[in-house]
Amino acid sequence: MSRRTVRKITNYVALCLSGLATAVGLFFLGAILWTLISSGVAGMSVALFTQNTPPPGGSGGILNAIYGSVVMTLIGILIGAPIGMLAGTYLAEYGRNSRLSSVIRFVNDVLLSAPSIIVGLFIYEVLVVRMGHFSALAGAVALAVIAIPVTVRTTEDMLNLVPQGMKDASTAMGAYHWRTITSIIYPAARSGIVTGLLLAVARISGETAPLLFTALNNQFWSTNLRAPMANLPVVIFQFALSPYKNWQQLAWSGALLITLAILILSISARIAVSAGGGRQR
């Protein structure tokens, strides 16, 4: 075989392999979605959305878990979003090149990739032990701690995309710095920031590990923030590992619901980005 043939064959094989790798990645996404849909749809019924988690063997739905997840995600994002946005604004506008900002940026990146179970442990030590019992509030705070680094990062990135000329123009008109930020920069970066928030919601609504130690779980309907509250991820965790058929079925349905919700959130976030013209990392 001539050298040229060898090179051509190597080229062909390598390119086929990389195409194959992509197919493998797509295959796993497809396989997971297919499993979720085929096993989850069977459990879809009105009862799923109208009844609470049943005892083993009984019939029921996951209403309390859906409610708990929504409430805790909302509180988490309500606490996390303002803090994250303010911190991001500080990094992008006030302390862009200061030493403190680079330290904060580094710490934020560490928090961003810290295992979520660590956050759960932290909140357990700080809130659960002090309060003496598990509570929905502690769960929400844990989710907020996870949401903060995400919003800090996206807010900073989005604010940095706002053209310097617009800021200069505003300053030249005699606007104070805070005026420039609230009237010029925020509106210009709005779609990007909203995307960041959507991604943060998507991230925390699927978190399981931190809720294990904070919100725990609840078999019953509860709106008391100071008591343990049911939530989808932990219900899925417990029910999927249980030996009872009806619990496992509920776990699959719950898994399907939560995945659909997250995928819809992520896709709409991406659409918002391409509509706003920004670039998401």
Binding site: F28, L29, T208, A209, I236, A255, I258, L263, S266
Partner: peptide, 12 residues
């Protein structure tokens, strides 16, 4: 699609 794979929660 590959990025969506990253968005799927770990419990799934």
């Amino acid at each position: 699609a590959i990025e969506l794979l990253a968005a799927v929660p770990s419990i799934i």
